[in-house]
Design a protein around this nucleic acid. Sequence first.
DNA 1: TACCAGCCTGTCTATAGGATAGGAATGAAA
DNA 2: TTTCATTCCTATCCTATAGACAGGCTGGTA
Lengths: 146, 146
Amino acid sequence: MLSKKTKYGIKALTYICKNEERSPISIGEISKAENIPHKFLEAILVILKKGKVVSAKKGKNGGYYLLRDAREIFMSEVIRLLNGPIAMLPCVSLNFYEKCEDCPFEEGCGVNQLMLEVRDSALQVLEHKSLYQLTSEIKIAEDTLS
Amino acid sequence: MLSKKTKYGIKALTYICKNEERSPISIGEISKAENIPHKFLEAILVILKKGKVVSAKKGKNGGYYLLRDAREIFMSEVIRLLNGPIAMLPCVSLNFYEKCEDCPFEEGCGVNQLMLEVRDSALQVLEHKSLYQLTSEIKIAEDTLS
DNA sequence: TACCAGCCTGTCTATAGGATAGGAATGAAA
DNA sequence: TTTCATTCCTATCCTATAGACAGGCTGGTA
């Protein structure tokens, strides 16, 4: 399952991206616009800041802004920061690998083999989807609706 | 994350499949061979039984056996029974759909769009991987090791 | 220098996963 | 017909984590 933390995080990023010319954008504005609990969003953006995805400006008219070109921010990275491993099992994770105690050897574990394939197929999507692309898709959807 | 329930369930199924000619196989045997807590495995197999994947024979020399050809048992089904939805969000789930409260309209939600693609790519793998296939792969791995 | 917005720490609750226990029901074998 | 292995059912417990909120500190900008 994708945690709300991650969901909120992605929404916040797309909101910042959509309004980049006005950035920095304050937590208050994002939380109102995207229906995200204010304090929770605070914590989320701190994580994204530590992850070098965004940066913050303090003081009056402060807020958050993208630290890199939105074309260079990929969903795989954001999800790893907020949700943890993309793989569904620690023993097939690239960035959060852990051996599992109950398996004598991984190659002979069917679950391992299976989840390896699932992970790769998910990465195929997530490593190629940039924040820029995601934001564009939303804009298109909004335009066709109105 | 894949729950241990699911992991254990798949392991149990492959074990039964591997030893199908001796079936029914008892919980006791499976739990010992695959390092699965006995009582927990009980609960898991009951679920798989309700899901018409396996069936049970009671009494002496009883146990569990596959209810269908292993070629007709797909991982997508097993995972849905034990782990719940394959999608990472209820609002993109085929079998466990739920609208999310915070989105005014789904088409304009980037997370929704993204997770839709991830779900499809995962399904591509899981709907085509049969228990038979998975079990074969394990056998091959075991042979090449020895 | 005053204020605004980010930052930090800590607490609380609900939920779900994982695991265990004890005994009832069933049915094959002795 | 008795015995015993096995499934089946109900119930309880523990723990970790997600989600959310509160209060006050910090630092920079107007």
